[in-house]
Every structure is written in structure tokens, then in C-alpha cells.
Amino acid sequence: MSLLAIHHVAIICSDYAASKRFYTEILGLEILAENYRAERDSYKLDLALPDGSQIELFSFPNPPNRPSRPEAQGLRHLAFNVKSVEEYAQYLERSGVAVEPIRIDEFTGKPFTFFQDPDGLPLELYQA
């Protein structure tokens, strides 16, 4: 018995339209399905990355804020592989997304940096 891969990561957003735009238009994720669940007053947007992994984007009425700083226990961030951290960071900045300075992973020697989604969820770019 073994795990094969990460299938999806689920994210709850505060502003569905802003987050949908961010993940589809800025990050370029493909929409697989979009459903409105009236009984929950909730949208569920299934998004795909090129490797087949997915992000499920949910909206719920009045979700509580995510503790972030100081770093809270639990999931720390979501990291994306990119061919060039520098080029993708420049693209994000041209798109109006603030990006931290690029750093080098002390163990792998690879560049990485962080940015945030519209709700402040920490996202990482990591050079493949």
C-alpha cells in the first residue's frame, strides 16, 4: 500500500470572484468544473495544474480568517514548481502581485520565493 500523489488541495476564499480571477487569470489554472451548492450558499471550483493535480476553491458565507502570522500550526503553504522562479516572479509583479525577494534553498541550492493569494494564503514558487 502506498500513496501515489497529491490529488488536490482545498482552499476556502472570502471573495469568490477575486480568487477565481487570481487562480484562473493570473496563475492560469484550468477550470475543470464550477458548481454552486444552494443548500450551502457555496461555490466549488475545480482547477487543474498541468501535472494533473488540482485545487478545489470553495466559497462559504463569512468564513473565519486563517491565522498566519506568527506562523500557526497546520498547513504552512502551497508550493508550485516553475521552470524559472525569477521569470515567474517578474510575471506576478507585472500582474500586480507582491512577491518576496528570491532566496536560495540552503539544502538544494534551488531558488524560491513567496507570494499570497487574495486572502493572504502563503504560496511559494520553487524552481523545478
Rank of each mutant, 00 (worst) to 15 (best):
F22K: 00
E71H: 14
Q73D: 12
M1V: 14
K110Q: 15
F114N: 02
E93F: 07
E93M: 15
L123K: 02
D119Y: 00
D15M: 07
N65P: 11
I12R: 10
Y91L: 07
P118M: 05
P50K: 12
L32T: 13
L47T: 01
D105E: 13
V9R: 03
E93L: 07
R94Q: 15
A48V: 00
Y43K: 12
L125R: 01
E100W: 04
K110W: 11
N62I: 01
E86F: 12
A89Q: 02
P118I: 01
H8C: 10
L123T: 03
K20C: 11
K44Q: 14
K83Q: 11
A17H: 09
E56T: 01
T113Y: 03
G74T: 09
P61Q: 03
F58W: 15
Y36H: 13
D119A: 01
A33M: 08
I104E: 11
P63G: 03
N35K: 12
R103Y: 06
N65F: 08
L29T: 01
Y23T: 01
V99K: 04
A48L: 08
K110P: 06
G120I: 04
P61K: 07
P63K: 02
P122K: 05
Q54C: 14
L78D: 00
L125C: 04
K44E: 13
I6F: 14
E39N: 11
E34F: 08
